[in-house]
């Protein structure tokens, strides 16, 4: 949006350089969704509790609803679209599919990024460690067990 009060930002999103003029109040999730068309990042609560908007910012899991777009200036960001295209979560996606570790799918992109990060830092987690790691990601459909099963299958 053209506005004198906007701030120019430049960042890397899924490996591509992006520049934009953004209002200071625009959060990162809305920037992805509305400005970049990256609608795989979902917004469930807008106050950082449900975890549906989780993305990777400079390699770390972050709630994109709690970050302003202006704060991402210079950052390297990955969303579900990038993770999917990279092939690095393919095994997790397949295990989630096979075990029906998703129903409505609204929490799923963030859940995949979250457990992908778990397996990077802890390739052989216990079931309790998986449950603990995803305890900031609300899934209202599955009851979580199939998600834990899928992660355990991939980590085995």
């Amino acid at each position: 949006m053209l506005d004198d009060n906007n701030t120019r930002i430049a960042l890397t999103v899924n490996g591509e350089t992006v520049t934009a003029n953004v209002p200071a109040r625009l959060n990162l999730a809305d920037f992805f969704r509305h400005d970049l068309g990256l609608t795989g990042t979902h917004v469930g609560c807008e106050h950082g509790v449900c975890g549906a908007c989780t993305v990777l910012v400079d390699g770390k899991l972050a709630r994109s609803c709690l970050m302003l777009a202006v704060q991402s200036d210079g950052a390297r960001v990955e969303t579900i679209e990038g993770a999917d295209a990279s092939g690095r979560i393919t095994k997790l996606q397949q295990a989630f599919h096979r075990r029906n570790a998703l129903q409505c799918g609204f929490c799923t992109p963030a859940m995949l990024l979250t457990v992908g990060e778990l397996l990077r830092v802890n390739p052989k987690p216990s079931r309790d460690e998986v449950r603990d790691w995803i305890s900031g990601n609300l899934c209202r459909c599955t009851g979580y067990q199939a998600i834990v099963d899928a992660v355990m299958e991939v980590s085995a």
Binding site: I80, D84, H97, R98, R99, N100, L102, G105, T108, L112
Partner: peptide
């Protein structure tokens, strides 16, 4: 049988 629809949701290609 797993669900066909799940594939697009897993790829961030769902359309809500």
């Amino acid at each position: 049988v797993p669900r066909d629809r799940a594939k697009r949701l897993l790829a961030g290609r769902g359309r809500f």
